[in-house]
Simulated assay, not measured.
Amino acid sequence: MRFTRSRSRLLAAAVGLGLAATAMATPAVAAPAETGASAKALAAAYAAVDSAVSRSALSGIAWYTDEATGKVVVTADSTVPASALGTLTRTVGADADAITIKRAKGEFKPFLGPGDAIHGAGTRCSLGFNVRSGGTHYFLTAGHCAEDVGTWYTNAGQTTRIGPTVKSSFPGNDYALVRYANDSLSHQGGYSVGDARVGQRVTRDGSSTGAHSGRVEALDVSVRYRGSGTVRGMIQTDICAESGDSGGPLYAGSTALGITSGGSGDCSSGGTTFYQPVREAVNAYDVNLY
């Protein structure tokens, strides 16, 4: 099996309501746009939400600061009862006016499942981006995929070895580094590292559902997955994904942006997905895309 960019690329590897500006009586002078809470109030609201979620048993929830609207956007998946959101709002207290509550279909969870891509310990995930350090070649995938996988294979029968998991980080982050130890496998490159922008058109690829495109909704998002841990600094998009797509690449053209972490929904009804920024992973492991 050749690990090339041509193999679906993967083997080559959230808004509150802004208030409009109003015209004043003085000629040629307009009032500045209201942008919601002040920076200090916004920071306090974010800290209050973060603390409330961390101290509770609440999961299936994501939150980030939307500086454009002056709101902290809290997105709850379908498993979070309305009563729990009410409790969260009351716990936040006076800072609740700086919060916008949204709902997402399905359940926020790390994507993981059986199938046909990179295999290990009875699970399947997707290869993200190829990287190297000196003359040694590796690839990046999701950290939650690699927690219990010592060795990866190209097939479910585990007859063609790729190589070992060298390092992994989850929760908090969601990235892992796997070393190529099979000289018969090619590992072409073709990407450079970049940073995602809100509104940017992007594509993600995965071994379950292939390539799907959409837009970046938010940056620096914190997510507490159901039945798992909290990850921070994530990219949020409106692109669908399903189990087994974890670890796959998020990119814009030849610019590598993220590694698929988790989300909700599916590619029939749509969903919300979260990605580990690639730049953080390559910096953590002192490797380079090529």
Rank of each mutant, 00 (worst) to 15 (best):
T123N: 08
A12K: 00
A13D: 13
S126Y: 08
P32D: 14
Q188A: 07
G143S: 05
L257H: 05
V166D: 13
A181L: 02
R124I: 02
G115A: 05
A48N: 12
I118H: 06
R7W: 07
R90N: 11
D174I: 10
G229S: 02
V231P: 00
S243R: 08
D116T: 11
Y180S: 03
V231M: 08
T91W: 01
Y191S: 01
V178G: 04
A25M: 11
T260L: 15
N155V: 01
T26Y: 10
N155D: 15
A82L: 07
N173C: 03
T255H: 00
A39Q: 13
V49R: 10
A52E: 03
F129K: 04
L11C: 02
A37R: 12
A94S: 14
L289M: 11
G113V: 05
G86T: 12
G258H: 07
V202K: 05
A98T: 07
S83W: 01
P110V: 12
S213V: 00
G128W: 12
A281L: 10
P171Y: 05
G206R: 09
K167Q: 14
G263D: 04
D195S: 15
F139E: 09
V223I: 10
T26E: 14
S8E: 12
E242P: 02
A25E: 14
V198D: 03
S6I: 06
F108G: 04
A57E: 13
D50N: 15
V287N: 09
E242R: 04
A176E: 07
D245F: 14
I101F: 15
S184E: 13
D148S: 10
V223K: 11
Y285D: 14
I162L: 04
P32E: 15
I101L: 15
V29P: 00
L88Q: 03
S222N: 15
A121K: 08
R124P: 00
Q158S: 08
G172E: 09
G262D: 07
K71S: 12
R5Y: 03
H187V: 08
A68P: 01
G189W: 02
V193N: 01
K71Q: 14
T123F: 08
K40W: 08
D286F: 00
Y290S: 06
S269L: 09
G106L: 03
S261P: 06
A211D: 01
T160L: 04
I259Q: 11
A156S: 10
S264R: 03
A104P: 01
G262F: 10
A20P: 01
T79W: 02
L289W: 09
A181K: 06
Y191I: 02
T22E: 14
P110T: 11
S38H: 09
A84F: 00
N283K: 15
D220P: 00
T273S: 15
G190T: 09
A281Y: 09
W63N: 10
S51F: 02
R90T: 08
A43R: 14
S184A: 15
T26W: 09
V282L: 05
R103M: 00
V15P: 03
A31P: 00
R232G: 03
S6G: 02
T123L: 11
G120T: 05
E34S: 07
R7A: 12
S213C: 04
T237A: 14
E34R: 07
T79H: 05
T230V: 08
K105A: 12
Y225D: 05
Y251I: 05
V193A: 10
P277W: 12
S186D: 13
D116Q: 07
T87S: 13
L127W: 01
G262P: 04
R9F: 04
S56Y: 04
S168G: 01
A146E: 09
